[in-house]
Design a protein around this nucleic acid. Structure first.
Lengths: 144, 144
DNA sequence: TTTCATTTCGGAATCATTCCAGATTAGATG
DNA sequence: CATCTAATCTGGAATGATTCCGAAATGAAA
């Protein structure tokens, strides 16, 4: 399971010629510390502020976008709900609770081969998104 | 492959006690005629208008939401891009082109068992979303 | 230390989607 | 067929996450 960590992220910034700024370090910290929560931009903003006072929401958005586009993290898009960010880069399904918004990782052995898709549909896969939504254990309990 | 069709959709409306209105019929027509395009709300609006002059965008949104929530169609959510609607209710992957937005269905044999997820993660799956994005055949050609 | 492309900032703009309150209507009932 | 009512429709305003913008600040190379 390939999970983001501080050193890797900083290393990747250097590799790609991106500058190491206090804001980016604070955002990286927030991302790594909350990687299991699949945080949204606002959580990252709040957490990053605790460490480095000088971070704006614009910067958080720009940075998360940059990171996603460079493959450092993965963006989970929604329309009404805030986008969420995922530091688990292995093939997995995100289990998204419809009631409370919790996102749980569900690891699985890779079964579908991008190669087959390229051959059969002439489509080159660069990003995957697999999500099941429904109700998490806690929310199921609460109903009873 | 379970694809939506006019008769089924109308039948489901009746079953669920929803009224058959000219607006809904126009939207159903537009959905069925464009089911391969994975249309967005605006395309449905434009197409529905051609048949029945009296349809508002609000109604189109409300209706597509209703239909999705009732499982008649499936909503594909994005943050910046318009949401799209899918009339293919079978398990399949949507191949989404990053450049032109085309969405292609890629059918596959069901491999992951919701039962396993319920057992292992205590999570009850009600909806699935599987998407690969990348570049479609046409866009790949255009680059060369 | 100088330089400059990159990054950051705050506030305004965007835009798909939802909300709202009033008007209309499908379809059940007699 | 006429009446009735909950469901539906409407257009315009509101929402809210995200992006855009021009100006100010700054990392890091020379």
């Amino acid at each position: 399971m390939k999970m983001i960590n501080k050193e890797d992220l900083i290393g990747q910034l250097k590799e790609k010629g991106l500058k190491i700024t206090p804001q980016r370090l604070a955002i990286i910290n927030a991302l790594v510390e909350n990687r299991d929560a699949h945080p949204g931009a606002n959580l990252i903003y709040t957490e990053a502020r605790k460490k480095a006072k000088r971070v704006s929401l614009s910067t958080v958005y720009a940075t998360l976008k940059d990171f996603s586009e460079n493959g450092l993290i993965k963006q989970l898009e929604f329309d009404r709900m805030e986008n969420r960010y995922d530091g688990n880069l292995s093939e997995h399904i995100n289990l998204i609770c419809k009631r409370c918004g919790t996102i749980i990782d569900y690891n699985l052995p890779p079964t579908i081969e991008p190669k087959d898709i390229a051959r059969k549909a002439g489509f080159v896969v660069t990003d995957a998104r697999m999500e099941y939504s429904g109700y998490c254990r806690d929310c199921l309990k609460r109903t009873k």
